[in-house]
Computed example of a mutant assay.
Amino acid sequence: VERFWRSIKYEEVYLRAYESVRDARSSISNYIGFYNSGRPHSSLDGSTPDEAYFGGRQMAEAA
């Protein structure tokens, strides 16, 4: 969890100047989606958390 918050801070929050709380929530929400489905993780051998958890299945199938 600590690594997750560090990633959000350094890869999203500190790089942006949000105009409003609404913009911040939207942008951070988009980043979390990217973090889980598009960003490879070295601790998961280059897989995304979604790939590791769902075993490579499509998210639509898992949901």
Results as ranks from 00 to 15, higher is better:
18 Y>F: 15
37 S>H: 15
39 R>Q: 09
49 P>L: 07
3 R>F: 03
10 Y>L: 13
32 I>Y: 06
27 S>E: 02
21 V>S: 01
1 V>R: 10
61 E>G: 12
14 Y>H: 04
30 N>C: 09
33 G>L: 09
40 P>S: 06
63 A>M: 13
23 D>F: 02
6 R>D: 06
27 S>H: 02
1 V>G: 10
54 F>I: 09
15 L>W: 05
57 R>N: 10
25 R>N: 02
23 D>M: 04
41 H>Q: 08
37 S>T: 14
23 D>V: 05
21 V>I: 11
29 S>F: 03
20 S>L: 01
34 F>I: 10
60 A>V: 14
39 R>N: 06
53 Y>L: 11
35 Y>L: 15
8 I>N: 00
22 R>V: 14
16 R>L: 03
13 V>G: 00
5 W>V: 13
20 S>K: 00
38 G>L: 07
32 I>K: 00
2 E>A: 14
25 R>S: 04
61 E>L: 14
7 S>C: 10
36 N>G: 06
51 E>D: 15
15 L>N: 06
59 M>N: 14
32 I>S: 02
61 E>S: 14
33 G>P: 00
3 R>T: 12
11 E>V: 00
52 A>T: 12
57 R>D: 11
54 F>L: 06
27 S>C: 11
54 F>D: 02
36 N>F: 02
41 H>N: 07
8 I>C: 07
52 A>P: 03
3 R>E: 10
36 N>W: 01
4 F>L: 15
26 S>I: 05
48 T>G: 05
10 Y>I: 14
53 Y>D: 08
24 A>M: 07
3 R>I: 09
61 E>D: 15
21 V>L: 10
1 V>C: 13
18 Y>W: 09
50 D>Q: 12
12 E>L: 08
17 A>K: 14
9 K>D: 12
47 S>N: 11
4 F>G: 02
17 A>R: 09
45 D>H: 07
4 F>M: 11
54 F>A: 13
12 E>T: 09
40 P>H: 04
37 S>E: 14
15 L>D: 05
21 V>F: 02
52 A>D: 14
10 Y>K: 10
1 V>K: 09
42 S>R: 03
28 I>S: 01
27 S>M: 03
41 H>P: 04
14 Y>L: 10
18 Y>M: 01
44 L>D: 06
13 V>L: 13
37 S>W: 03
46 G>N: 01
9 K>H: 09
34 F>M: 12
27 S>N: 05
